[in-house]
Design a protein around this nucleic acid. Structure first.
Length: 585
RNA sequence: CGGGGCGUAGCGCAGUCUGGUUAGCGCGCUUGGUUCGGGACUAAGAGGUCGGCGGUUCAAAUCCGCCCGCCCCGACCA
């Protein structure tokens, strides 16, 4: 491609609308262009990189026997109602009507259509397992699109669904997909963590997210400082650090605490630690009130509560509700003297409080000296209902956990029979009986991955694409293309490299060398060849690597072979990071 | 959805508070000349319904009202 023909532009200044480096650079380098909040067009450079990611995804999926399909973006209400999600999915679903006033939506995900196809086509265990994927534009009317391609309303996603006869088979395939994802992210030269995640509303047993660190991270994860344990903040079950308790009181003692209705106020009013307080929260879970006791320095983890109660919906109760159910104002609620039939969940963290402060169920009063093991009924079950915090201990090895922020680029789910049950998707098993499919679903944010690569690989001058994702592998810059000797040398090399299937740009623009260099750095070509009177005098060209800035003179007659082996080497460096495929059983 | 900020040429901005000539600056773009290894210099140009609609006024980018859009911070997720 000649630079004079390349449909692009570069911006010298940062666009006002972008905040994150990778977003700024993708705009400045002419990879993408925004049309509306969370809606982008890909310009030729951006699309080339995106296609490279797709190609890697396709290759890796072929290794695990998955087949590509393309489901419709337009989906019918009826299908969504079958799995009960038309109403549940809410505002995030783009809804529209056709000319006959029928309800349709734009697919935010494709469990329903895929399950519909498979239940109609697969009737026998002999046809299993099946794994189908697609790379397709998804639509989600996000409450808050942000960070360019990171959180879009229209975005590219690879989604795959697998169908199995046995759970063993599903679990085996799940591991293969997880490995497939690790290979893909490795080939994109992304730093990633595979972390245990919460099954959440989608349900199912196993569930892992692939997180790239940084990027003003939307998700928080915990990494063990010692072992391999990694989990999302929702899933992580850190062990509690015991803190010294207050001096033990013989009995609970009522104290006057005027207008002290938060943990922070109470801690400073009594000059104690939040961990000396037992917090009493009220949540409305599927319409029913629940009291949750938790140590004052922890937050209730809503996902864990939902899982424990196998519930769908949860919210913090209002002050009125709390008073109606427990006859005490928010801020002064406590475990002593609650109605006998109250539903109570107690987090394990309260066990570490030997002499705690709790609400007295009366405005402006608390009790001191509450000992859960004595003062709560012996039948109390203790569970994990808290959000792990920085410094909690690893559940496997008890080393401190550290919290980092990151971005989810991939997710693998063991769905079990959630959708196949709801949609009556069955086949005949080897005993001749009807059985529902066991399903897995697996996603990669493709457009999000593109920006993640840009985020990890850039510097103050611009993008630094790994060769596997670069829109072009190489740019040839003749300092002055109008000079006949430079032009000849550049043209010759360009033609030769094209014939060898190099992805090469020739910067034939009539502009200064500085502009060409700046643009090359900004766009982030991994390799740059400079041809100038200086180099030609030595019958050589200059080769510069974007990733480390190193450069060397290469004799003209050797440059083609040198580039061929260099390209091979760069790909090899990436391949060496890729974990091996799991053997197929 | 709540809170904050912004909308003036392809991009970045000034002008708005305190209404008043032909709405300005830088980058980019066009043409000529001089340059030519890290975003050159110079001369001459082109490019605007000042987000939209309505109102106030002799007069509105500027004041008032309504609407639309974009960005950031929080509740959600690939």
């Amino acid at each position: 491609m000649r630079a004079t023909r390349l449909f692009t532009y570069t911006l010298r200044e940062d666009p006002a609308e972008a905040e994150v480096d990778s977003h700024i650079l993708l705009l400045r380098a002419g990879f993408i262009r925004q049309f509306a909040a969370g809606v982008f067009a890909y310009l030729p450079l951006g699309l080339r990189s995106l296609k490279k990611i797709e190609k890697i995804i396709r290759e890796e999926h072929s290794f695990i026997g998955a087949q590509e399909t393309q489901l419709s973006i337009l989906q019918t209400r009826e299908l969504w109602e079958e799995a009960g999600r038309w109403d549940v999915y809410g505002d995030i679903l783009f809804r529209l009507k056709d000319r006959k006033d029928r309800d349709l939506c734009l697919g935010p995900t494709h469990e329903e259509p895929i399950t519909d196809i498979v239940r109609n086509m697969v009737k026998s265990y002999r046809e299993l397992p099946v794994a189908l994927y697609q790379i397709q534009t998804k639509f989600r009317d996000e409450a808050r699109p942000r960070f360019g391609l990171i959180r879009c309303r229209e975005f590219l996603m690879k989604d795959m669904y697998s169908f199995h006869e046995t759970n063993e088979d599903l679990e085996n395939f799940y591991e293969q997909v997880a490995r497939c994802y690790e290979r893909i992210f490795s080939r994109l030269n992304l730093t990633y963590y595979k972390v245990e995640a919460d099954p959440g509303a989608i349900g199912g047993s196993a569930n892992h997210e692939f997180i790239v660190p940084g990027l003003s991270g939307e998700s928080q994860i915990f990494l063990c400082s010692n072992c391999e344990y990694k989990a999302t903040s929702e899933k992580a079950s850190g062990k509690i650090v015991e803190l010294p308790s207050l001096n033990k009181e013989d009995d609970t003692k009522e104290i006057y605490t005027p207008e002290v209705d938060t943990i922070d106020k109470l801690a400073s009013f009594l000059n104690i630690k939040p961990a000396d307080i037992i917090k009493t929260m009220v949540f409305i879970v599927d319409g029913k009130p629940y009291v949750i006791l938790i140590r004052g320095d922890y937050e209730v983890n809503e996902a864990k509560v939902l899982n424990k109660l196998n519930a769908k919906e949860l919210r913090v109760a209002t002050g009125e509700e709390v008073f109606r159910y427990y006859f005490a104002p928010i801020g002064f609620l406590g475990p002593k003297g609650l109605p006998v039939n109250a539903r109570i969940l107690v987090d394990e963290s309260v066990i570490t409080v030997k002499s705690g402060v709790v609400g007295a169920n009366k405005e402006n009063f608390h009790f001191m000296g509450f000992n859960p093991l004595q003062d709560l009924p012996a039948s109390t079950n203790y569970g994990d209902y808290r959000t792990t915090k920085n410094g909690d201990l690893c559940p496997l090895c008890e080393a401190p956990l550290k919290e980092i922020k990151g971005m989810e680029v991939g997710h693998v789910f063991n769905l079990g029979t959630k959708y196949s049950d709801a949609m009556k998707a069955t086949f005949t098993n080897r005993e001749g009986k009807e059985q529902t499919f066991l399903m897995g679903c697996y996603g990669i944010g493709v457009s999000r991955s593109l920006q993640s690569v840009a985020e990890e690989h850039h510097d103050e001058n611009g993008l630094k694409w790994p060769i596997s994702v670069a829109p072009y592998e190489l740019i040839i810059i003749p300092i002055d293309y109008q000079k006949i000797d430079q032009k000849n040398a550049a043209d010759q090399l360009y033609e030769k490299l094209l014939s060898l299937k190099f992805e090469v740009v020739l910067d034939d623009r009539e502009t200064t060398a500085g502009v060409k260099f700046k643009d090359a750095d900004l766009i982030g070509y991994p390799l740059r060849i400079t041809i100038s009177p200086r180099t030609l005098a030595k019958r050589a060209v200059e080769l510069k690597l974007r990733k480390d800035g190193s450069s060397e003179l290469i004799p003209q007659e050797e440059v083609v072979n040198y580039l061929l082996s260099l390209r091979t080497r760069l790909f090899k460096e990436i391949e060496e990071m890729v974990p091996p495929l799991l053997s197929l059983e």
